[in-house]
Every structure is written in structure tokens, then in C-alpha cells.
Amino acid sequence: MNALDPPMRALQRVLGVPRIAWMFVGPNLAILGLFTFLPIVINFYFAFTGGVQLYPSERPFTGTENLSTLFDCGSYLDPATCRKDLFWRSIYNTGEFALLQVALMVALALVTALVLNRKILGRGFFRGVFFYPVLLSPVVVALIWKWVLQREGVLNAVLASAGSSPVGWLSDANWAFFWCVFVSIWAHMGFYTLILLAGLQAIPADLYEAAEMDGTSPWRRFSRITLPLLMPNLIVVLVLGLIRAVQIFDEVFVLTGGGPGSATTFIVQFIYQTGFAESIHQYGLAAAASLVLALSLLVLTLVQLRITRKNLDSPAGRGDG
């Protein structure tokens, strides 16, 4: 990279020192502009045009037709009455999944953080145990559990040895949904545990010592000291968990493929299928569904911003960079 020095020096002579800063932020900004900001604009264009062509000039303007197709429903409470019933099923599935998964995951992460915050043997080791699945790829996570859950898998073998008949864990709609929740908790809990653990360790120990002097019960110490002081972290974890849960795709796609039927089809999978996987690529419909997803994420993000406004220095939001 030393070879870059003479041209950079020449550039610097032309631009002057303060303006050379633009040369340093330039590549990063260009990439963001091309692959983030420009697509946001184009997404609107796609959402309001129809046809099956990818190139914008070949797409006829159709106004709000895509949106009205998505929202064409006899009753919004019953997906079967909708023109795009899969869209509404995926929305209901996503809502149910997000609430269930986040509630259970945050509760478990809290218990885990409380246990790991105690003076226990092998604390570092156990922190690693709970954190390890966070690093695994979603595909690997799904395959690990698919192997455990398949009809002739180890879970059914354990059941068989207890005298029970095998269960189609991934072919029964309710069980498949349960395992989607379970596996995504398994894969992500460690991350939230870590955030809560950091919050617990920031609580001054002398508060507990003073409470112990006064003879307060452990439960009272938890509800009067730990919980209130941990509340900011808990809320961050809740909102962050919701933002991620609404975008669930990878693990579930490999684990169940969205099935059986549409029992585990979530909103991102609907977008993927509509835009890319089906034989006719309905880009407009997929873009319109993206707008709906973006709107719900925007609401969640605004909630998060409101909560974390005090410490804006902590960017927390997306899982891939």
C-alpha cells in the first residue's frame, strides 16, 4: 500500500488537508449509497409498478395496485378470505412467533444471566456454553436440529425407549411452530444473556450488601434492586429481540421450509418466495410486502431510539453489520 503514497500525496496537494477527509469516507459512502440508499428509493418504484420485468423502464406504473392486492381481504382476522392469503398467514405467523419467541427468550436469558452472575465454578466456561450457538450459521443450526428431530432421530429414540410412539416433530403444524420458536431461542439466547449479564455486573455490589445487612429476603433484593436497575437493559433486549424476530428467515427456511402447509411461513419468506423463488417473479408484490415489513420495523426502531436516546453511542440493531 506504500505504492499508494505518491498518488495520495498528489491528491492531497490538490484537495487540501480538510477536504482529503472525503477521500477517506468516499468508498464507504459510495457502497452505502449504491447498496442501501439507492435501493430504498427503488423499492418504492417497484412497489408501485407491476409486470414481471426486473428493469424499471419495462415495468408499467400500476399505482397502489400491489398494495391493494395484498390488503384485499374479506376479513382481516381470517387469512382464508384474503386474495393473498399466504401474505396474511405469514403476518399472523410472524406476529405470533415474535411475541412468543421474544417473551420466552428474554425470560430465559434473564434467568441465565442471573445464574451466570453468581459466584459459581467455571463461570467463563458456562458463559461460553450458552453463547456458542450464537456464532453458528443459521443453516448449521437448522441442520443440527433437523437431525435431532427427524422421524428416526434421537429425540424419537429417547421417546421410544420410554415406551412412547414417535412424533412427527416437523410434519405436525403445531409442533413445527413450537420447534421454530425453540430453535431460534436456542440460537440467539446467548447474545441477549450477554447484554443482560453486562447490565447485572454494572449494578453496584454495595447495594446488595446494604440490603443483606438489613436482612431483606433474596426475592425482595431481586424485585427492589436487580429488576429496577436492569430495566433499561431489559427493554433494549426486548425491542432488539422483536426487531430480529420479525425478520426471522434463515433457520426456519432450512428447518421446515415454511411448512407443513404455511404453518411456519413468515413475512421474509413470503417476500423471498414472491420475488425470487416462484416461477413468476412478482417483484412489485414483493417490494410492496417489503414496505409493510419496513413500516413495522420503523415503528419498533423508533421505540428503540426513544428508549436508548440517553446513550446514542450504542448502535444496536442489525445482525449482519
Binding site: L54, Y55, A286, A287
Partner: peptide, 26 residues
């Protein structure tokens, strides 16, 4: 402004711009 612009992309997950990004890449 540049710093805020970069940080703000944290709130734009790739899942909501799949179709237009596909166009750009293609």
C-alpha cells in the same frame, strides 16, 4: 451528517431492500 448517515443504515436491514438490491447487483 456523514456519521449520522452511516449509523442510520443500522436501521435498514437488508431484508427490506431485497428486490431493489437485486436490481442494482444485476
Amino acid at each position: 451528517a456523514v456519521f449520522l448517515l452511516i449509523i442510520s443504515t443500522l436501521m435498514i436491514p437488508p431484508t427490506i431492500i431485497l428486490v431493489p438490491n437485486f436490481l442494482v447487483v444485476s
